[in-house]
Design a protein around this nucleic acid. Structure first.
Lengths: 260, 260
DNA sequence: CGTCTGGTTGATACGACTCAAATTTGGTGG
DNA sequence: CCACCAAATTTGAGTCGTATCAACCAGACG
C-alpha cells in the first residue's frame, strides 16, 4: 500500500480521506475495511469560504464535522468584543465527536482558510462505532488528545511568555500537520494571520508582530506568504519548553492490539 | 425518595454516592437502577491527603477516578518551575472517562483538600456503559461539559482581566457546587488558597490577593476560612461577563428522553 | 489605479509581576 | 491553655511585559 511517492505527499495521492486515516493511524493500525469506512463517512461534505462560520454559538449541533481540507478554528466571543480562538483544526481533525448530545453550541467554528468539511450524522457515527471497534478506539484517543491539547493551551496562555507561547504554538501545529502528511522538512502551510495568532495566544496583534520578528531574528523560523519554515527545531523546542507527550503520538494504541 | 430534609443537604443524607447522581441528573433523569449502578461503581475508593498527588505525570493510568468528597485539581508543570492548574474537580466529577486508553499521563492530579476518590476499572466502566444506556449518555454529556469548561478557562485566561477572571472562576465553582447540592444561599466551601487561585488563573498570588480585596471592597463576595459567600450574584455575573451556557445545565438530555 | 487587508513601526500607558518584609491564621505539642 | 511554628495572607515600592493608539507601508484585488 505504501509507495515511495506516498511517502512524500500521501494526502494528495490518496485524496482527501487520507488525512483522517493518517491521524487515526498515529494511534492504531487500521485495516483496509476501516479505511474504507472512513471514506464512506466522508462522502457528504461541503465547502466553506475563509472567514465564514461553519456553525455558530447558539446553533443546534446536527452533525459531527470533519475537516478534510483547510484550517478552521473554534472561537468564543465576549460581550465587550474580545475574541479568543480556543482551538485550531487542521485536516483530519474532528470537531466534537458526539456534539449532537448538546442542545446548543457554546462556541462557534469558523473557517480560517477555504474549508472542505465532511458532515456526519449521528446515525452514521453510531453505525461506524458499532461496526468498527478499531475506529471507535481511535476516536476515543482523538477525543482524549483534543482535550489534552486544550489543557496545553491553558498552560501556554497561563504561564508562558509571548515569545515562548508563539514558539510553542508553531511547533504544535507543525507537528500536527506532520502527522497527517502536511509538513515536510520543517515546512508547512500556515494560513493564520497575525490577528488570528493574537486571538489564539491572548496577545495583541502588535505584540505578535514584534515577537515573530524576534523569533526570526533569532534564526528560529521563517514565516511569510502563509508558509512557515522552522529553521532550528531543537532550539525552538527549547525556547518553547515544548514537551510532545500531550499529543500522545507514541502509538499508545499498540498496547491494546493484543486483544484482537 | 425526596424529603424536606434532603432538599437542604442531600449529599450528607444519601451518602457519598449522591454527588455523581446529582451531577448526571443535571443532564437526564436516572432510574433507581441507574443510581444503584453508580453506587456499585463507587464502592472501591481511597483517601488522599491534601496536597498529595492522586496520580502523577508520566504514570500509566489504570483507573477512572471519581471524586466523592473534597476538591482536586489537574495541573501541569513547566521545566522552569511554573505551575498551571488546568482544571478543578469537585464532588461528583470524573477525572477522564477512558484515560486508560493512553499510555501515560500528560499531567498530574492532585488533592486540594483531603480527598475521597473512587477508583473504577476499565472493566467496570464498560460493564456500566453496556448495561445502562442512560448513564452512558450522561457520561458523554459529562465529557462534553468538561471539555467546554476547559475552553472557557482558555478564554478566561486569554481575554479577561484579573478582576473579571477571578469573578468568573468563583461563579463557575459556586454553580458547579450548587448542582451537586454543595452550595446554599450563595455560600459554599472553598478550600483553594490564594496560591492555588494564582496557579489556576495565571496570575501571581500577590495580585490575586489584591484583586480579591477589590472584589470584597465592591461588596461582591466574602471569602475567609475556606468559605465563599457570594453577596451580589447579579453584579458579580455582570463583572465577570459570565454566561452559563457552557455548563449545559439546561437539561439538554430531555430531548433524548423520547427514545426510551 | 484606488481600496482593502495584513503587516510594520514608534511613542506612551498601565496592569500585573517581582522582591522583600510584616502580619495573621491554624495547627501542634508541652 | 499557651507557646511555637509553618503556612497563608497582606502590604509597600519599584519594574517590566504587554497593551494602546496612531500612523504608515506593501501587496492583492477589482
Amino acid at each position: 500500500m505504501m509507495s515511495p511517492l506516498t511517502d512524500v505527499r500521501p494526502a494528495l495521492f490518496f485524496g482527501s480521506g487520507t488525512a483522517v486515516a493518517s491521524k487515526l493511524e498515529a494511534f492504531t493500525r487500521l485495516s483496509s475495511d476501516d479505511r474504507a469506512a472512513l471514506g464512506q463517512i466522508t462522502r457528504n461534505f461541503r465547502f466553506v469560504d475563509a472567514r465564514r462560520d461553519v456553525i455558530s454559538e447558539g446553533d443546534q449541533p446536527r452533525h459531527v464535522h470533519l475537516v478534510l481540507e483547510g484550517w478552521a478554528c473554534r472561537y468564543k466571543q465576549l460581550p465587550d468584543g474580545k475574541r479568543q480562538i480556543v482551538s485550531l483544526f487542521v485536516p483530519g481533525d474532528f470537531c466534537d465527536v458526539n456534539v449532537y448530545i448538546l442542545k446548543t453550541m457554546d462556541h462557534s467554528i469558523g473557517a480560517i482558510s477555504r474549508l472542505k468539511v465532511a458532515m456526519i450524522t449521528a446515525e452514521e457515527m453510531s453505525a461506524l462505532t458499532a461496526e468498527r471497534p478499531r475506529i471507535t478506539q481511535a476516536l476515543w484517543w482523538h477525543e482524549l488528545v483534543t482535550a489534552a491539547i486544550q489543557r496545553e493551551w491553558t498552560l501556554n496562555i497561563g504561564q508562558r511568555s509571548a515569545y515562548e507561547r508563539l514558539a510553542h504554538l508553531l511547533i504544535e501545529l507543525h507537528l500536527r500537520l506532520n502527522t497527517v502528511g502536511r509538513a515536510h522538512h520543517g515546512r508547512c502551510d500556515f494560513p493564520l494571520t497575525q490577528n488570528d495568532l493574537a486571538d489564539a495566544t491572548g496577545l495583541t496583534a502588535v505584540h505578535v508582530n514584534r515577537t515573530l520578528q524576534e523569533l526570526r531574528r533569532d534564526g528560529l523560523i521563517e514565516l511569510e506568504r502563509k508558509q512557515l519554515q522552522i529553521l532550528d527545531m531543537p532550539r525552538l523546542i527549547d525556547a518553547a519548553m515544548f514537551n510532545p507527550n500531550y499529543l500522545h503520538l507514541d502509538h499508545d494504541g499498540q498496547h491494546l492490539d493484543s486483544n484482537e
